[in-house]
Computed example of a mutant assay.
Amino acid sequence: MSVSASFTSIVGFDSAWTDNPRTPGAICVIRLESDGAHLHLAPRPASFAEALDVIRGEGQHAQKCLVALDQPTIVPNLTGSRPVDKVAGSLISWIGGGVQPASRSKKGMFDDAAPIWRFKQVLGAIEDPELARTASSGLFLFEVFPALALATLESAFCSRLGAPKYNPVNRKRFKIGDWQAVAEVVRCFGALNSLRHLDEWCSVVANSEAPRKADQDKVDAVICGLIGLHWLVAPREQSVMIGDLESGYMIAPATRGIHSRLIAAATQRNVSIR
């Protein structure tokens, strides 16, 4: 990484996992400078290759760059799901959502030829969330999960079957009120971390009468970026790392403390949570 500026870049990337050209993911960039944070690149569609281009561009100028990725980044298990997936699922299932189990048996997602592994190889980032917080420079990567973030940020979403139905693809379950509520939670999460230039974007999102899947991907990319920003600037106790760097992990906000269901599930499965 060529260091030529004193700002930190936080890249939020919703990869869509399989790198299907017809259904790309989305990416955004937040820059953290001496006078605070601002949304530098509004979310836009991006494949893995396009994401690498964005990250390279940021890396040429930023002193530190953190990539917050909505996809499992460490998947050693051949079948089933990772311990961290089970812990996250204890809360997500309760609120009426789902956790995609990650294993090497998932063709196109986590098998040896899956795009995530080439992405990581080409990226060459350090995968150490705790070091990413304290290091003065470098390129870092960590895994985040927007659905878990939303559950921990909004009490209305963190109740029995209270998960927001904001995926436009699922027409039977999609609720425009939930879509608008998610946009407001994103706006408030940005305000909590003093992120500038987000309000207007959230207003446009909230006023969309017929959002598409690409719009949801953009929302999730912003949530990814905000999780990364929160990890860096908020007190450590307001975030949680579930799991470890051997079996897999997730980073999520914990602005109201770590939810008791996550603690119980982690304790039961002997999974690190801190």
Rank of each mutant, 00 (worst) to 15 (best):
V219E: 06
E237T: 10
R160P: 01
C202Y: 10
A234L: 09
G228L: 10
R212D: 13
C202Q: 08
S239M: 03
V169Y: 13
E209F: 03
Y166S: 09
A210V: 11
V240N: 01
P168C: 11
Q216F: 10
P168R: 11
E237Q: 14
K172C: 06
C202N: 08
A210P: 04
D217L: 01
I176A: 11
F157Q: 02
G190Q: 09
K218E: 14
L198R: 03
D217S: 00
F174R: 07
I176N: 07
L195Y: 06
I176E: 00
S159V: 09
I176T: 04
A191R: 15
W201M: 04
L192S: 14
D244G: 07
F189R: 01
P164N: 07
I223N: 03
P168S: 14
D217E: 01
L161G: 10
D199R: 01
H197C: 11
G243Y: 03
W231I: 07
C224N: 07
A206C: 05
I242C: 08
W179A: 01
C188R: 15
P235K: 01
L195A: 01
A181E: 08
S194I: 06
S239G: 03
L198D: 00
M241V: 08
G190R: 11
C202T: 11
R236E: 12
R236H: 08
Q238M: 11
K175S: 11
A234Q: 11
D244S: 03
L192H: 14
H230E: 12
R187S: 09
A191F: 13
F189N: 03
V186W: 02
V185G: 08
A221G: 04
E184A: 14
A221D: 08
V186C: 02
A214D: 13
V240D: 01
Q238G: 04
V219T: 04
L232P: 09
L229I: 02
W201Y: 12
W179M: 00
G162D: 10
A210S: 15
Q238P: 00
Y166H: 12
I242P: 07
L192C: 12
D220V: 05
D199Y: 02
D244E: 01
D178V: 01
G228K: 06
R187V: 00
S194Y: 08
V219I: 11
V233L: 05
D217G: 02
E184P: 02
F174K: 06
A210I: 08
N167V: 12
